[in-house]
Design a protein around this nucleic acid. Structure first.
Length: 798
RNA sequence: GCCGGGGUGGCGGAAUUGGUAGACGCGCGGGACUUAAAAUCCCGUAGUAGCAAUACUGUGCGGGUUCGAUUCCCGCCCUCGGCACCA
């Protein structure tokens, strides 16, 4: 029997694919429907490609190859999300400029990626850290600025006083600096934001039509966090000030017995009395050290301080005390709440702790014991008494509106996108400041606004770009004496929010090469949205919302024709090692290289697919890889061996059906199992050449090199990926007989084989005649008979 | 803590508009081939009892609905992802 040599064979086919530019795509091809098959681009870290990358890219490519055989013009690009923190940290440690290390890392990664044997169109690759890419990141910023979406406001950053630098959340875990263990404080800085909140409702509505996992849609819905309620104005006693609060329960306004402001609320300093000032200031200082998660922990003891000031409840004129507490956040609602301890759990707990009054205004619970947050009937509420909660809400909102004391509003949990980063390795924000400090956009003609290279990477109290003499000189030369450059760079999520559009313009020499325009409208209209987008579930709420927002904004600005970037989304599962996420810092990455050079990339790819459902991931181990290696050997030996034998068309067509449906659902594990089952049978009976030609096409997306070799062996002149995917005949997938299970009182008592279309009476009769069933029916009264066609018969007896 | 997943043999997993739990593979046990080993091939493999037919138990734990629950409902436990500056 012929022996398969995977290494030699795979190299041969990869060479040929490359030489014949087999996977370079003509975006203007009108002969076939398009299919944009996209996988989230990787960050080029210093690690070599690990098993997790393969787990992601292999199956994604198999899907692309399948769609190609289904007759689509498949565009499958690959690029690099190259700006970011790790390269900068590496630079601080070693002094190597990020541009250099990134160059080396991407080159290594490209080499390794090519070994997977994918259909990537390398003529259209991109790298977000290159000026020819980030000029469009900057262009996007300018568009956002021009349309009033980019604005500047103060926001807190993690600050380490010892290192004189801003820290990422990751570097500031447990409230201390990762490098020097200094306590991290929140420091306010003026930073750029994008008004994603303008799109909150559209981001919510757009989810309906997307073929995305339901759990991802749910997470986005919760992240956007729409809630209906009212803003209510409270007058402050003894000052001219007013406080606006947001509440989802305006019907409980009569039960508001105190008010709580976020410690950062600007009015706190106005209303604090001299007697309380010291305590308030100490509390504000302490809160600066807490993370939002610590502040909103429902289990922790509530803390807070009385300001000494009072507000007036607009609905009954009552004077209520104003407190501050860290569980009220400045970033949600108005940064102030009316507290209704009888009907909100957090307020209840707070009131109990600080001995504040609890007044029931919705009946249905027992508010002396616990808060009653559900709906009920209004009581102790003047004109609301007797109304149900929904009606009471409406009535109160009407009342507030009439008196100009409030209004019904929709509030979102979603916050505007902070895009400023006090970092070196990112796209510079294309803004300059005149001598008065006023911001001006940098005109398009000066893009790309280059990232300077004359900086230290070690932080010195400001953003690294602040050290660049060249940047300062450049700014003054172009704009005038005394003008200053913006020295913050952009969040890397900005770079990744539009890259799917730039792949359509990347590449050199082609008509649509991307130097002149952001996007070619004709190409965009044809190729967007991305048909299949594959990436990790960890991106459910950030990248995947940012990209949708940017696409919607670009549509509003008139640059694109679609408002959603990704029509279908699938998350691959996470591959762990020894129970942990693979990462270089943990030292638990597993390299695919030794497996690939021993078994070949087809075996490795198939093994990863066979491990379990693509969406599950799992803990890496190599125990089962020999099973796939054996299967590949058997498959090769069988196809390359003698043909002949009776063709069981039923089995063959059932297999085509199973493999097709499983690949459509990205369930590669069961597709492979179906092929194994078929092979196990076929080696015993033999198979015609026609049958073999079908089998080779079925395995082609899963083991591309093997399939090419066998296709050639069977007389194929061109690549197997030019062949049509096999169709099955539904009539042939139906068997003449089925096995029915027979139950008595819900317990399995036997089986019977019957003709497929058998009637109810015949099925019951056949079932009752089964020996062991008859035994269990004997002497009993049958009270119920159930027949599920094709599945089972069930008798209920007394 | 909050939001969203997951938990099935020794192991990876299969089967859900409620209908035969354990497909396929690994491992393990036995056999064939071989001087021998490797490779390959064949048979067996959830647990308990039994020669067997068969019976009982069994899908994280405790309840419930149903003729029938891995699947639906209620309450727990464990675990993973995200929580807005890792990407």
């Amino acid at each position: 029997m012929a022996k398969y040599n995977p290494i030699e064979t795979e190299n041969k086919w990869r060479e040929r694919w490359k030489k014949e530019q087999y996977y370079n795509v003509d975006l203007n091809d009108e002969s076939r429907p398009k299919f944009y098959n996209l996988v989230m681009f990787p960050y080029p870290s210093g690690d070599r490609l690990h098993v997790g990358h393969w787990y992601n890219f292999g199956p994604a490519d198999s899907f692309g190859r399948y769609m190609r055989m289904k007759g689509y013009n498949v565009f499958e690009p690959m690029g690099f999300d190259a700006f970011g923190l790790p390269a900068e940290n590496h630079a601080i440690k070693t002094g190597t400029p990020p541009a250099e290390s990134t160059e080396v890392n991407t080159a290594t990664m490209v080499d390794q990626l090519k070994k997977i044997g994918t259909i990537y169109d390398w003529s259209r690759t991109l790298n977000t850290s290159k000026p020819e890419y980030y000029r469009w990141t900057q262009w996007l910023f300018l568009q956002m600025y021009k349309h009033g979406i980019a604005y500047k406001k103060e926001a807190a950053v993690n600050w380490c006083d010892t290192c004189q630098t801003v820290l990422a959340n990751e570097q500031a875990q447990d409230g201390t600096c990762e490098r020097c263990a200094t306590e991290v404080v929140q420091k306010p800085l003026k930073q750029w934001f994008w008004k994603i909140t303008d799109y909150a409702q559209r981001l919510l509505d757009g989810l309906d039509d997307l073929d995305w996992p339901e759990k991802t849609k749910l997470m986005q819905q919760n992240w956007i966090g729409r809630s209906e309620g009212a803003d209510v104005v409270f007058e402050l006693v003894g000052t001219a000030g007013k406080v606006e609060v947001f509440t989802t329960r305006p019907d409980t306004l009569f039960g508001a017995t105190y008010m709580v402001l976020a410690p950062e609320h600007p009015l706190v300093l106005d209303i604090v009395t001299d007697g309380q000032r010291k305590e308030i200031m100490a509390y504000i200082k302490a809160v600066k050290k807490k993370t939002e998660m610590q502040r909103t922990d429902l289990e922790k003891d509530k803390t807070g301080v009385f300001t000494g000031g009072y507000a007036v409840n607009p609905v009954n004129g009552e004077k209520i005390p104003v407190w501050i507490a860290d569980y009220v956040l400045m970033t949600y609602g108005t940064g102030a709440i009316m507290a209704v301890p009888a009907h909100d759990e957090r307020d209840f707990e707070f009131a109990k702790k600080f001995d504040l009054p609890v007044r029931e205004v919705v009946s249905g619970g027992n508010v002396s014991e616990t808060a009653f947050a559900e709906e009920g009937t209004a009581v102790n509420s003047g004109f609301l008494d007797g109304f149900s909660t929904p009606d009471a809400k409406k009535k109160m909102i009407k009342w507030l509106g009439d008196k100009k004391l409030g209004r019904g509003v929709v509030n979102f949990r979603l916050r505007d996108w902070l895009i400023s980063r006090q970092r070196y390795w990112g796209a510079p924000i294309p803004i300059v400041y005149d001598p008065d400090g006023k911001a001006h956009p940098i005109p398009d003609e000066h893009l790309p606004w280059l990232l300077p290279t004359d900086t230290e990477f070690k932080p010195k109290g400001t953003s690294p770009l602040g050290q660049s003499k060249e940047l300062k000189a450049r700014t003054e030369r172009l704009f005038g004496k005394g003008w200053k450059p913006e020295i913050d760079t952009m969040d890397t999520f900005v770079c990744s929010s539009f890259y799917y559009l730039r792949y359509l313009m990347a590449g050199s020499g082609s008509a649509d090469s991307g130097a002149e325009a952001f996007i070619n409208p004709k190409i965009e209209k044809k190729w967007m949205p991305v048909d299949m987008y594959i990436g990790g579930p960890e991106h459910a709420c950030m990248h995947l919302i940012y990209a949708r927002f940017v696409m919607m904004a670009l549509k509003d600005f008139g640059f694109v024709s679609h408002s959603e970037p990704f029509a279908r989304l699938v998350h691959q599962g996470l591959i762990k090692y020894q129970g942990l996420k693979m990462s270089k810092t943990k030292g638990n990455t597993v390299s695919p290289d030794e497996f690939v050079s021993f078994y070949g990339s087809d075996v490795f790819r198939m093994y990863l697919m066979f491990m379990g459902p693509f969406t599950d991931g799992g803990d890496w181990n190599d125990k089962g890889i020999t099973g796939i290696a054996r299967f590949v050997d058997r498959f090769y030996g069988f196809i390359a061996g003698e043909a002949g034998g009776p063709a069981d068309l039923g089995l063959l067509h059932k297999t085509i059906k199973r493999v097709t449906e499983d690949i459509e659902k990205m369930q590669f594990n069961t597709a492979i199992a179906a092929l194994m089952e078929f092979l196990n049978g076929a080696v015993k009976t033999g198979l015609s050449v026609e049958g073999k030609r079908i089998l080779v096409r079925l395995i082609a997306p899963l083991a591309p090199h093997l399939a090419e070799e066998l296709w050639k062996h069977l007389g194929g002149k061109k690549s197997v990926f030019n062949e049509k995917w096999p169709e099955y005949d539904p009539a042939l997938t139906v068997s003449a007989t089925v096995t029915l299970a027979v139950q008595v009182n819900g317990k399995l008592r036997g089986q019977v084989e019957v003709a497929t279309g058998i009637s109810l009476e015949e099925a019951l009769k056949a079932a009752a005649e089964v020996e062991n069933v008859a035994k269990h029916l004997e002497g009993k009264e049958i009270v119920k008979k159930i027949y599920v066609p094709g599945k089972l018969v069930s008798f209920v007896v007394k």
